[in-house]
Amino acid sequence: MNRIEIDKLTKFYGERLVLDGIDLSVAHHEVVCLIGASGSGKSTLLRCINGLTEFDEGNVRLDGMDIYDESFGRTGLYKRIGIVFQAYNLFPHLTVLDNITLAPVRVHGRQRAEAEDAARKLLDLFGLGQYAKSYPEQLSGGQQQRVAVIRSLATDPEVLLLDEVTAALDPELIGEVLKIIRDLKTQGMTMVIVTHEMAFARDVADRVCFLDAGRIIEEAHPQRLFSSPENPRTQKFLERIIASGRLGASA
């Protein structure tokens, strides 16, 4: 059974069709990258997977169970699927440590001391140990984004959704975030990643899906998709990317 099964997912914003019958499945430990032009629906698709955005038709299943199934309870789904946003969305009024422990303590009923221990371990692991008591604004963008990743890992999710997590970063900070994602892949995390970093997608993805106007019009292993795209729209998209020099050597 696949970890995530998406069936004929359709989503309208008002009159506008944003997702047009998406079918997508993600196996255990698989890393799927979503690429596509701005406005093609990548973020919306990601947010439908963990129920942040309601959709109109179709369904999404996690380990065979509909995400709106009662048995997930109110928080079960959010515990098992973590999401990281492009703009980090850390809470500016909370320290790094409190950002990370908020959900474990308030949502999952862990003891504060226990949650803080776990958070500190994660911070050390990602080289942010000395920033536990800092506020987000005191950190660099790359550090903030790493904290955001840790925050979503703090509840031990089985699936991680990443939405252009490097788009707001300076080039020299991108590497440190991408390294974390590679490490997570090594540890077997199932991930769906929206990215504009084609080199990274080629490097980390087991499969790349190209979205166009709310549809997945081509999906394949990155080697195949990047070297010999079949759909003319994919070809055009990749040509534009190559022209802008973003399909270079692996980062």
């Binding site: 963990n50 942040l52 109110r74 928080t75 789904l77 959010y78 515990k79 973590g82 999401i83 946003f85 969305n89 850390l90 809470f91 908020l102 959900a103 308030r106 949502v107 999952h108 925050r151 979503s152 509840t155």
Partner: peptide, 8 residues
Amino acid sequence: MAAKALGL
């Protein structure tokens, strides 16, 4: 959105 995604 971040708070909701954390299950709050």
